[in-house]
Nucleic acid binder design. Sequence first.
DNA 1: GGGTAGATGTATCGAGCCGATACACTGGGT
DNA 2: ACCCAGTGTATCGGCTCGATACATCTACCC
Lengths: 206, 206
Amino acid sequence: MLELAILGLLHEAPVHGYELRKQLGLRLGGFRVFSYGSLYPALRRLTRAGLIVEDPEQTPEPGAWSRRARRVYRITAEGKERFAELLSESGPQSWDDESFGVHLAFFSRTPAEARMRILEGRRRAVEERREGLRSTLAKAGAQIDRYTRELHQLGLDTSEREVRWLNELIATERAQQDSGTGDAADHHSDTDHPGTREPGPGHTET
Amino acid sequence: MLELAILGLLHEAPVHGYELRKQLGLRLGGFRVFSYGSLYPALRRLTRAGLIVEDPEQTPEPGAWSRRARRVYRITAEGKERFAELLSESGPQSWDDESFGVHLAFFSRTPAEARMRILEGRRRAVEERREGLRSTLAKAGAQIDRYTRELHQLGLDTSEREVRWLNELIATERAQQDSGTGDAADHHSDTDHPGTREPGPGHTET
DNA sequence: GGGTAGATGTATCGAGCCGATACACTGGGT
DNA sequence: ACCCAGTGTATCGGCTCGATACATCTACCC
């Protein structure tokens, strides 16, 4: 996920580590902050993989190295490819809280079909959590601790609200898909709950 | 955190790893599940630390070892001490989502003062998150991505709800502390924070 | 000039947790 | 006889975090 976030920010402009983390906090709005202990190793991983490079114009020569000297990173062509690839990843690992937020932050660059898959996948995940909490409360509600029960109730309410929120988002998305992409047929029909929408032949490689 | 959860469950009855994980899922209600990749190393750590032991009566001899043979763990005296110690830990690390849930699951065994500290610490943490989201929306609301903005709004609502929830929990707790503990002097000391009670005006309800 | 406080900036380390994976025994159904 | 799902223990690599260290730059005050 850090990989996606770094690539996404470097896609816009070359920056150095410290600045990158601040941008990350702003872009992700503080609901997800990565520590330097994750950031610097990730930058090295990405460099090793050839997805980003240290900008030689803004990074000083090894001779005049002062410590605290900025290392400015740029995204490469392979990096952009990888970024597009990651954007369209819509498997279960894109549905958990953290990853979903990161994905959402780059939704404006995400293809419409991938957006749909991610939103519906997320909804499915939240619905599952909701049902789990619901059945736990129904079946074991009397046996479990009062505090835990209250926490479950709070989690249940939160899940219900998020599902409603996702439904609105999906509806908006669908409307834009029908009107915005002139070629798209208006096949939205009347099914508000399309259920498990299979991506079809698009096999998720891993 | 796993340490606390394991100790808490073994405090009630000796069980083996597999069963332990199931109990954990039930007790924590599925809002927090630990994987075996965490559980088994944790069990070994705790054993090495002398906080738990393999029950020799229910664990077969090394001679007749079949693989898949159950290793039944029991809590030791030191383990019970450590458990009580962990229960009263109320530092910042007890306030994040995951840890707070685990702490709450064992609240019935937690001393009243520790309960208060944890609840108020949690409230403070959620209030901070709420203010962070609020200021982000106010200051950078127009610049950030529409999707991210919506996610922030959802997070803000969730935080507000949790603060209200915590306020109720704290009020109940305070009332019980004043009335319930017959021998304890009612030294509740009016230092309660009357603020943070959100009036929530003009909130559009769906 | 000298002091010092705080932001900037890069970097490492240990430890926890996870997902994937492997292996092995058991019970029941067909 | 065969298979399969559930039970059970265990390891591995990899990601992330918090703590920590160290160096530089700026600004402000005495």
